[in-house]
Design a protein around this nucleic acid. Structure first.
Lengths: 193, 193
DNA sequence: GACCTAACCTAACAAGCGTTAGTTTTAGAG
DNA sequence: CTCTAAAACTAACGCTTGTTAGGTTAGGTC
């Protein structure tokens, strides 16, 4: 049973799993290598530095969030329907990439200044997508008494904290989680005054 | 201007600030010492190990959460009022101890197995407090269509993610944040079907 | 068989880690 | 001035860190 995945990808995958469980700084290059049955130094035939590995993981995760949610933000639907689909997409990205999502949320601050700034900018853009949809709902009378800033914060808090408790083998599927979350939050945005 | 705080407390305080900004593993004993104008080895006149410092910070934070919220959970009030006050207390603990709360949420997993288990148990008890109050609200007809598990998860997601974005010098006070959060979430629990 | 390339290993580097032992400094009490 | 005890310093310990240089191996191409 030969694994045909390129070695470089295997490194990213293994590093993602180990960074998520032990954290970036507590994971050694030799730890990663051992998991792949090789020597620590051999990793450097495929990658340039430890931080580059972290960057690859974090940047891919950030891109996945944006690419999944951005197309939904402008759909010709009521704000509540758009918000529901955006949250579902977010939950989907988190639950399907639990390890990398965990690294994204936990370890991005260990990137160098330039890369950290790049991620921060993407995160701000992402937040703005949610804020804008809720603002649309306020303007359209769907969420008459809601505050867009707090609404977006609430949606993203729920969506982001998810990596702390979601287990793929648990009772709730990702879709069920997303639906229940959306039910309560959207009801809240509608009914609050 | 002599600081009369015992050296041991100064160490916990400085370590809390540095652990929260750089993480536990990226912070050196010599880093902490430098901040206090001493040598790395001198710290060991006051503490026994680096992990003990982390433990002190995390355990104190956990105790603060429980001690602040537990007395409110059994108050003779409607569930929605109790939940509002519990969330306010939680937000208060986070915002008044931003550094230590950050360490609590981020770094507790680097404790040894026994201590980690102790914190996990306290966290479970804490979650149950919120779940039970919402369950009370469901039973009393206040939250007729709500799911207690998801409701508690939502409250705690909002309350816990707070440390990621709250800034004491920002536009929103802690009380205002807590009130807005409670407004939306309680409206959601009431109106969801 | 000669050649090439990618993948890997071995061995080491300079630096930094948490921690300790022994010594010196400081400050107050008798 | 002396004694004491706490607090800090110096210097090192054994180990680990990310990373590198140079040599080895395996498989495919002319």
């Amino acid at each position: 049973m030969m694994d045909t995945t390129p070695r470089k990808e295997q490194i990213f995958q293994t590093a993602g799993a180990m960074f998520s469980r032990q954290g970036y700084h507590a994971t050694t290059m030799r730890d990663i290598a051992r998991e792949l049955n090789m020597q620590g130094g051999s990793l450097y035939a495929h990658i340039d530095s430890k931080e580059d590995v972290l960057w690859e993981i974090v940047e891919r995760a950030a891109a996945q969030f944006l690419e999944s949610v951005r197309p939904l933000a402008g759909l010709p639907l009521p704000a509540s329907a758009r918000l529901r689909r955006m949250l579902a997409a977010h939950v989907d990205v988190v639950t399907r990439n639990l390890d990398n999502a965990t690294v994204f949320f936990h370890e991005w601050r260990f990137l160098g200044p330039a890369r950290r700034a790049h991620i921060a900018a993407q995160r701000d853009e992402y937040e703005a997508l949610f804020r804008r949809v809720i603002q649309d709902g306020v303007a359209a009378g769907e969420f008459p008494g809601a505050d867009a800033r707090m609404g977006a914060l609430l949606v993203l808090s729920a969506g982001n904290w998810l990596y702390q408790w979601f287990r793929p083998d648990g009772a709730l599927s990702a879709a069920a989680v997303a639906a229940q979350m959306a039910d309560v939050i959207i009801a809240g945005l509608r009914c609050v005054e």
